[in-house]
């Protein structure tokens, strides 16, 4: 009897994992606050990035402020491969990254090990 309960519980757990990690879930998106010919977004690093998608206006100098709350060494760098940026973000510190907004498009960023991703949309 107990084995049947365990079996059902485990199958349910597998189903939950599939739904939780692979199901469609909305990601947090933030529009940059534009002030006086500059725009900036604050991004918190904690088990991933919030927001995960940042929308910037083309042609206005932009800065992203990354603050790492997470202790994991998985998240200790922010890498923009398109811009050649590889910035270390020490825990509980804020690092500012300048983004070149001259060309519209989608630019991915990732953690140092390419496990977590976020993207900047310039339009």
């Amino acid at each position: 009897m107990i084995k049947w309960i365990v079996l059902f519980a485990e199958v349910a757990a597998i189903g939950f994992i599939l739904w939780w990690f692979f199901g469609q879930h909305t990601t947090e998106t933030a529009q940059a606050a534009v002030t006086n010919q500059s725009q900036s977004v604050d991004i918190e690093i904690n088990g991933g990035y919030s927001p995960e998608t940042v929308v910037l206006k083309q042609g206005i100098p932009a800065t992203l402020h990354f603050t790492r709350k997470d202790a994991s060494s998985c998240l200790d760098h922010v890498v923009f491969s398109d811009f050649g940026i590889n910035q270390e973000v020490p825990q509980n510190q804020t690092e500012t990254i300048q983004i070149d907004t001259s060309k519209p498009g989608e630019y991915q960023w990732a953690c140092g090990m390419d496990m977590f991703h976020g993207k900047v949309v310039i339009k």
């Binding site: 939780w20 990690f21 199901g23 879930h25 904690n46 088990g47 991933g48 919030s50 995960e52 709350k69 997470d70 202790a71 994991s72 998985c74 998240l75 496990m115 977590f116």
Partner: peptide, 19 residues
């Protein structure tokens, strides 16, 4: 503990990692 905190934080965002 930091592994667990980090794992939980990413779990909430539907992510999983080594932690």
């Amino acid at each position: 503990r930091p592994f667990i905190i980090s794992a939980w934080a990413s779990f909430k965002k539907h992510h999983a990692n080594m932690d």
